[in-house]
């Protein structure tokens, strides 16, 4: 049996990859994928804990996170298409009409 810590380290690595991708990447789609990667890190951590604790809540949470990620992807891609239609670019640095 694979010990719990392996899963947790893997989930932490997945999550960290997602965060790094979000901060470094400049393409909107890639940034969006990084967020999905973060959510998958969360999922893995929930499943690992739920299996370890022999409880159901963690598994249920994962289903909800998956649903949320799917809904977010649908809405997110729609927004990305709307942005692309008005600007013809997918680089976040070029989407800068509102000043920071």
């Amino acid at each position: 049996m694979v010990p719990l810590s392996y899963y947790l380290v893997l989930s932490a690595i997945l999550f960290a990859c997602g965060v790094a991708g979000f901060l470094i990447k400049r393409n909107i789609i890639t940034i969006f994928l990084s967020i999905e990667l973060m959510l998958n890190g969360v999922n893995l951590s929930f499943v690992a804990f739920a299996a370890q604790l022999n409880k159901l809540e963690g598994h249920i949470f994962v289903f909800f996170v998956m649903v949320v990620a799917a809904a977010e992807a649908a809405v997110g891609l729609a927004i990305i298409i709307a942005v692309f239609r008005t600007r013809e670019t997918l680089n976040v640095d070029r989407v800068n009409l509102l000043k920071l």
């Binding site: 979000f22 909107i28 940034i31 969006f32 967020i35 977010e72 809405v75 997110g76 927004i79 990305i80 709307a82 942005v83 008005t86 600007r87 976040v92 989407v95 800068n96 009409l97 509102l98």
Partner: peptide, 14 residues
């Protein structure tokens, strides 16, 4: 159709 609205939505979403 408004560029600013699109951009706001994108930043808020991400």
């Amino acid at each position: 159709r408004d560029k600013r609205s699109n951009e706001a939505a994108l930043k808020y979403l991400l």
